[in-house]
């Protein structure tokens, strides 16, 4: 039987890319627990007793956690554990679906984004999102896709060309598309499309970038490119990434939250969670005994 520790060592050896070098201990005492009180610790975003429903089905059953600024936080867990629903609550995308309900608090810089007078549209331009399947706008060129979030909202862009180059550079796509900026976004490969979607989100200079299994529709090479990307943009922007791939979580994140059946089982430093998991359930999951 392989232990969690051995497993962690294995994946450290095999991980070719993107192991975060410096892992700041982030208020470790506070990070170890899930209660609402402790979640009030410093952080870019703070979730307090979040519940989410689809119709009568309760998908998220009271989760509290805190997202560290300019760090990568991974959310892992078996399929159907509510991890996608959870991050869709962080930029108010959950309520877009009919029958969807949310309760609880999500503080972005100490302002509850579920406060009545808050416009979800504004929140979404501060908290960007990358989806599971690449979804560039098919009727727009690569360039227009990058600028879409600003242009379609009527924002005047002082130097559009520079912005396009900058964010495509950040998304590690500039080299591949600099000569075909006017081609349709749909003409790119899947991995390129996903990086285009990341660039499109970055163009708005979001404070937080939510990524919902961004690599699950991609092959291993495209996946490793996205992972490198997460590592580099994680320095300029707070990232919350959902993944069902534990190795990926271990490679790219500073903190990891393990969800099971709509509840937060454990939340800790990625290193600690994968080497010395505090709960039996976590250990069972990361060693592959279920899920």
């Amino acid at each position: 039987m392989i232990t969690a520790k051995q497993m962690f060592q294995l994946r450290s050896m095999s991980a070719g890319v993107g192991v975060p070098e410096e892992k700041m201990p982030f208020n470790k005492e506070n990070m170890l627990h899930n209660s609402a009180d402790d979640a009030k610790s410093v952080g870019k975003m703070r979730v307090e007793h979040l519940q989410a429903w689809f119709g009568k089905a309760e998908i998220i059953k009271g989760v509290s956690l805190s997202v560290a600024d300019k760090k990568v936080t991974a959310i892992i867990g078996p399929s159907g554990c509510g991890k996608s629903t959870f991050i869709r609550c962080l930029n108010r995308m959950h309520e877009v679906v009919p029958q969807a309900l949310v309760s609880g608090k999500v503080f972005l810089d100490d302002v509850d984004i579920y406060e009545k007078q808050i416009d979800p549209v504004k929140i979404r331009s501060r908290v960007g999102m990358v989806f599971q399947r690449p979804n560039p706008f098919p009727t727009m060129s690569i360039r227009e896709n990058v600028l879409a979030g600003l242009k379609l909202n009527g924002v005047k862009i002082p130097r559009p060309d520079e912005l396009v180059e900058k964010v495509l550079e950040q998304a590690a796509l500039w080299g591949e598309v600099k000569d075909i900026l006017n081609r349709s976004g749909a003409s790119l490969s899947g991995g390129q499309q996903q990086r285009l979607c990341i660039a499109r989100a970055l163009a708005l200079e979001p404070e937080i970038l939510l990524m919902d299994e961004p690599c699950s529709a991609l092959d291993p090479i495209a996946t490793s490119r996205i992972e490198e990307l997460i590592h580099s943009i994680g320095k300029i922007c707070t990232i919350v990434i959902v993944t069902h791939n534990m190795q990926q979580a271990a490679r790219v994140s500073h903190y990891t939250a393990f969800f099971y059946m709509g509840e937060l089982v454990e939340f800790n430093d990625t290193d600690i969670l994968f080497t010395k998991p505090g709960k039996q359930q976590t250990e069972d999951y990361i060693t592959g005994r279920f899920g």
Binding site: V96, V121, I123, G128, F131, R133, N135, F137, A148, L152
Partner: peptide, 15 residues
């Protein structure tokens, strides 16, 4: 997915 892409970029629904 396209609608969601638009919404996630902070566009109002009508836009």
């Amino acid at each position: 997915s396209l609608r969601e892409a638009g919404l996630a970029l902070g566009m109002p629904k009508w836009r």
